[in-house]
């Protein structure tokens, strides 16, 4: 099992997002006043300022907005912005690709997958090519 650097708590804005990963859910927020999507998570709407937000669950499908492969002595890995179909952009990674520098590019379809960690109950949402 992987052992990624982990989110740390208490951190009240992001804690509900990470709690949802334990249920295999990719959570985002929507403003009950102006209907704007809110991501990354926070306690107010960043379009209108309202504190009245609802949690929603994404289908976890989207496209790579941008991707870079970091050259690392422990193995190269990708970092990516994913544009989810619901309309929010998440910073994450794309896993399970041979030669990622050659085979990953903007515009590819991806789907979320929840990756268990050795030392945490939280699951890390990563993406795979569809």
């Amino acid at each position: 099992m992987p052992n990624r650097p982990l989110p740390r708590f208490p951190e009240p804005d992001t804690e509900p997002f990470w709690e949802a990963t334990k249920r295999g859910e990719l959570a985002y927020q929507q403003c009950n006043r102006c209907n704007s999507l809110v991501f990354t998570p926070r306690a107010h709407c960043d379009t209108c300022g309202s504190p009245d937000l609802a949690w929603k669950v994404s289908k976890g499908e989207g496209v790579i907005y941008s991707v870079s492969v970091v050259v690392d002595r422990n193995g190269d890995y990708a970092v990516a912005y994913i544009d989810l179909d619901e309309g929010f952009r998440m910073f994450s990674t794309v896993v399970g690709v041979d030669e990622p520098m050659k085979n990953l590019q903007c515009g590819q379809r991806v789907r979320v997958e929840f990756e268990p960690q050795e030392e945490s109950e939280y699951l890390i949402p990563v993406f795979r090519l569809v």
Binding site: R4, R8, T40, R42, S68, V70, D72, V79, F91, V126
Partner: peptide, 17 residues
């Protein structure tokens, strides 16, 4: 931890990336 770092740390973003 912060509202930003918690959404980024697991993915090992770097300055260059």
């Amino acid at each position: 931890p912060s509202w930003q770092s918690n959404m980024e740390v697991p993915f090992r973003n770097t300055t260059v990336s």
